[in-house]
Design a binder for these strands. Structure first.
Length: 383
DNA sequence: ATAGGGTTAG
């Protein structure tokens, strides 16, 4: 507190950049406002407002946000397009209707392409496709961001034909260069639609030919795409050429190995990743645990589960518990499997019970089967 | 000098 008293506006701005919770952000913001002199450039206050908005929307508190909105109106900071667009984005994540309302009040002079793209993204998330498309069509000077927002909207809602048609028009009717993000969007859609190998290769070829800077996301998506298509050799090649592999790259690779029953390699990759001090996440553990299930590696599975909780402090979810029930059930350790269900912190679902009952059937354990069945039925009724 | 689009689970 006393320390912040001596900080210059620039330092306060930096502190604001790192502020995580709304209260510290608002505190730093008001200190900075007090510190500003008439001689300071007027954009400083607007930059501070933008930085303060981030933790505000992360805390997802609508009252706090509208309070700050009031301040932005009174101080007229809202006339800065980047302030208006940041506010609009914050609203759109919390309340699409409030975002819509705000958008209608933004004067034409402030309503630049950023504001329009954010509004488009908001409609894409919360509104029907036709309204989003109508809004998109009305944007005068569309940028790559506008196109990729609309593309992602179609693809994420399963409208593949419309998505591809839109991709064709961006490539053939505009001068807009296809960038990494558009390609990521496109590849994700193709991967989920099962349109894999030739397409993936041509996108990959395009990336290499045009020496596009391969973003972290695009690298992950390429690995995932090749792996899902069963081209683990290509996936491995892409993987090995990513300069600073992050969790996502490792996880995509481990998932790929596990889903093609190359379980030993999945486990090896996982161990190598830990050695290299890359922090695994929930998804990584789902992948490596399922490799253990496939290969019947009971002790490894037990070890990894412990690692997840004790060392990486991750809360096991339904997928992890499912793997453990499977792992024990398939190894005839029915008591252990049942123990997992009895002690797990989330509600067991139908997959979990089915897995246990299947193991009971296989190993002819009537006692646990009856008990499990009763519990499963009791849950069903109480739902 | 500041703001916007994309990634992973039978």
């Amino acid at each position: 507190m006393s320390l912040t008293h001596h900080l210059a506006a620039g330092d306060l701005l930096n502190a604001l950049r790192g502020a995580a919770c709304p209260s510290s952000a608002l505190h730093l913001y008001s200190l900075l406002r007090l510190r500003l002199r008439p001689s300071d450039p007027s954009y400083l206050a607007s930059r501070a407002a933008v930085l303060a908005l981030k933790p505000l929307s992360a805390a997802s508190s609508l009252p706090l946000l509208s309070h700050f909105h009031g301040h932005l109106l009174r101080s007229n900071l809202i006339a800065y397009p980047h302030v208006a667009s940041s506010l609009l984005r914050s609203y759109s994540l919390l309340s699409p209707s409030a975002a819509h309302q705000l958008f209608d009040q933004i004067p034409p002079a402030t309503c630049n392409i950023y504001v329009l793209n954010i509004m488009l993204a908001s409609l894409c998330r919360s509104s029907d496709l036709d309204s989003a498309r109508a809004f998109f069509d009305g944007i005068p000077d569309k940028e790559a961001v506008s196109w990729s927002t609309m593309l992602a909207c179609y693809f994420s809602r399963g409208r593949l034909a419309d998505g591809f048609a839109l991709f064709r028009s961006v490539t053939f009717t505009t001068n807009i260069a296809v960038d990494c993000i558009m390609l990521t969007t496109l590849l994700t859609a193709c991967t989920s639609a099962g349109l894999l190998p030739p397409f993936c290769r041509s996108v990959h070829g395009y990336v290499v030919r045009c020496t596009l800077p391969t973003s972290m996301h695009l690298g992950t998506t390429l690995i995932d795409c090749y792996a899902k298509a069963g081209h683990l050799d290509y996936a491995t090649r892409v993987f090995s050429r990513v300069p600073n592999r992050n969790v996502m790259h490792w996880t995509a690779m481990i998932c790929g190995m596990a889903s093609h029953l190359r379980n030993k390699e999945a486990v090896q990759l996982f161990e190598e990743m830990c050695q290299r001090r890359v922090q695994p996440n929930e998804m990584t553990f789902t992948a490596v645990l399922s490799a253990c299930v496939n290969a019947g590696l009971v002790e490894k599975g037990r070890e990894f589960f412990k690692l997840m909780v004790d060392r990486y402090c991750l809360e096991p979810n339904i997928h992890h518990y499912g793997c453990m029930v499977d792992l024990y059930g398939k190894a005839r350790l029915l008591e252990d499997a049942y123990e997992v269900i009895k002690t797990m912190k989330v509600e067991p679902n139908v997959f979990i019970w089915t897995s246990l009952l299947a193991a009971c059937k296989k190993f002819k354990n009537v006692k646990i089967a009856i008990e499990g069945m009763e519990k499963a039925l009791a849950l069903e009724i109480s739902d």
